[in-house]
Design a protein around this nucleic acid. Structure first.
Length: 572
RNA sequence: CGGGGUGUAGCGCAGCCUGGUAGCGCAAUUGCUUUGGGAGCAAUGGGUCGGGGGUUCGAAUCCCUCCACCCCGACCA
């Protein structure tokens, strides 16, 4: 491609509404332009990157036995009513009516459609297992789209669905997809981790997320120092720390703590560590007005774990000021479990504390030297559960090593759906006994457009993008110096360009009438991995100048060996 | 949806408080010079000041209202 015929819509200044580096660079490099909140147009340069990612995903999905289909983006309400999600989904589902006043939605995902298709196509267990996928535009009316294509409302996703006669078969395909995803992200060249995940609203049993590691990631993931254990912190199991519980040794006492409400304030005032305090949170209950959740002072509540508890209302909701007064006879900040007349749920680490500090259920007072079993009843065994977020240094739940926490961008998610959709929608086949059997399903997503942003987030420097070779829009930039002055240079450049082109090196020849500085800057901003600079000076010496995007120095290559040299670089 | 903020040329911003002919930088166009790290000089084009309403002799500026966008929280590939 020649820049004189290709729109390099680069910007020198950073658009004001771009927050994270990938969003800024995608706008500056001219990969995308915003149409409205969460809606982006892919410009020619950006589309080349997107297509490369798609190609890798397709190759690997095909390799794994996947069959590509293309389902409609617009979906009839009936199918969603059948699965029950027409009701479950909130405003995130964009609903529309056609001219006949029939209801449809713009698909945020395609479980209903594929299940409907395969319940018609599949008759026998002999046709199973089956793996279908598509690369499609999805629409989710996100509460808050942000970070450019990272969290857009309309985005491109590869979604795959598998169908099985039994759970064992699902597990095989699930394992195969796990491997396939690793191959895909390896090939793209990203630093990533597969982690155990909460399966969220899609539902089902087993679930892994694939996270690209980046400080700007919206998720926190925990992984072990000594084993393969890795999990989203939403899901990562928090073990008891500080146990076993020491014997009671301190006297119970009530102390005045006027105007102290937070754990920090209390621990500072009383000169004790936050981990020696108990934090008591009141949330709405299912069977009772409120439920008390008790954590060690330095720990944080994990809302997902809490709302998954039977006694706790889902979604989780904190008790309001009135409910707190009614239940504890004081205001938030002075609540404690001693004498509290509500159901109590205690985090594992809070249950092994002794001689602790907690609220006295009286404004301006705290209790010190409190002990389970002596000053208040020991919590029931089944009321001691994991309701906190893991923190750096926690023991790994598999017993090997300790946990570290990193930020990640979720680019892939695989689920064992089970029979949630197939049973709701009556997707059955005959088994080897001739009996109708509900198919078991898995689903597997990759955020194609999000990967573009994630790759940039992980690969950039002060001058711009550093594309991994596998997804760079062009592999080599060819920059002539003083092209207009030299007939010899023009001829040589045209010849070299043609050679690079036919060698499949995807060259971008900067034949614009500009100064070299601007061309260098553009080539770096858009992240082309290899650069050749060709000049009369070099031709006189029989050399051409090479520099990788990640190099700090130029090197002169004998002109005759350029092709060979580049071939070596490109196969690295 | 709750809380905070911003809308002025393609992009980045000033002007608004204290009303009086709409500005700066970059980008664009033309010409000349220049050509190894985002060139110089000269000229040119480009604005319903987010929309509507009001106050006023006069509104980008003050008031009301609607809209869009951004940031912080709940959602997810």
């Amino acid at each position: 491609m020649r820049t004189s015929q290709f729109p390099l819509s680069t910007l020198k200044e950073t658009p004001a509404d771009a927050e994270i580096i990938s969003h800024q660079l995608m706008l500056r490099a001219g990969l995308v332009r915003k149409l409205a909140a969460g809606l982006y147009t892919w410009l020619p340069l950006g589309l080349r990157v997107l297509r490369k990612i798609e190609a890798i995903v397709r190759e690997e999905m095909d390799q794994a036995g996947g069959l590509e289909v293309l389902m409609p983006a617009v979906q009839p309400a009936e199918l969603w009513q059948e699965s029950g999600r027409w009701e479950q989904y909130g405003p995130e589902l964009l609903r529309v009516r056609d001219r006949h006043d029939r209801e449809f939605c713009i698909g945020p995902t395609h479980e209903e459609i594929i299940t409907d298709l395969l319940r018609q196509e599949m008759r026998s267990y002999k046709q199973l297992p089956a793996l279908y996928y598509q690369v499609q535009t999805k629409f989710r009316d996100e509460i808050r789209p942000r970070f450019g294509v990272m969290r857009a409302r309309e985005f491109i996703m590869k979604d795959a669905y598998s169908f099985h006669i039994d759970h064992a078969s699902l597990e095989q395909t699930y394992a195969l997809m796990h491997q396939t995803y690793c191959r895909i992200f390896d090939r793209i060249g990203l630093k990533y981790r597969p982690v155990q995940a909460d399966s969220g609203s899609i539902g089902g049993e087993g679930s892994h997320e694939f996270h690209v590691l980046a400080d700007s990631g919206e998720d926190a993931i925990a992984f072990s120092s000594d084993s393969d254990y890795a999990a989203n912190t939403e899901k990562a199991e928090a073990m008891a720390v500080g146990g076993p519980r020491p014997d009671a040794s301190a006297e119970l006492a009530s102390v005045d703590t006027p105007d102290t409400h937070s754990i920090d304030e209390v621990s500072t005032l009383l000169s004790v560590k936050p981990e020696q305090c108990l934090k008591t949170l009141l949330v709405k209950g299912n069977d009772s007005e409120v439920v008390a959740l008790i954590l060690r002072g330095d720990h944080e509540l994990n809302e997902i774990k809490a709302q998954n508890l039977e006694a706790v209302a889902d979604p989780l909701e904190m008790a309001d000021a009135d409910a707190i007064r009614t239940a504890a006879n004081c205001d938030a900040g002075s609540i404690g479990p001693v004498g509290l007349n509500t159901p109590i749920i205690v985090d594992r680490s809070a249950a092994v504390l002794a001689n602790f500090v907690c609220g006295a259920n009286e404004n301006g007072k705290h209790l010190t030297g409190v002990n389970w079993g002596r000053d208040l009843p020991d919590p029931d065994n089944n009321a001691i559960v994991d309701i906190r977020n893991v923190v750096e240094g926690d023991p790994s739940p598999d017993g090997n090593g300790t946990l570290s926490i990193a930020r990640g961008i979720e680019v892939g998610h695989i689920f064992q759906l089970g029979q949630k959709y197939s049973s709701a929608m009556g997707a059955t086949v005959l088994n080897d006994q001739g009996k109708d059997t509900v198919m078991t399903m898995g689903c597997y997503g990759i955020g194609i457009s999000r990967i573009v942003a994630a790759a940039i987030e992980q690969n950039n420097d002060d001058n711009g993008i550093l594309w991994p070779a596998s997804i760079a829009p062009f592999k080599v930039s060819l920059i002539p110096i003083n092209l207009h002055k030299s007939q010899r240079l023009r001829e040589t450049v045209d010849k070299l360009y043609a050679e690079l082109q036919s060698a499949g090196m995807e060259p971008l020849l900067d034949d614009r009438d500009g100064r070299p500085g601007g061309k260098f800057a553009d080539a770096e901003l858009i992240g082309i991995p290899h650069r050749l600079v060709i000049s009369d000076r070099g031709l006189d010496a029989g050399t051409i100048e090479y520099r990788a995007r990640t190099d700090t120095d130029n090197q002169d290559i004998a002109f005759d060996t350029v092709l060979e040299f580049l071939q070596g670089k490109l196969s690295d």
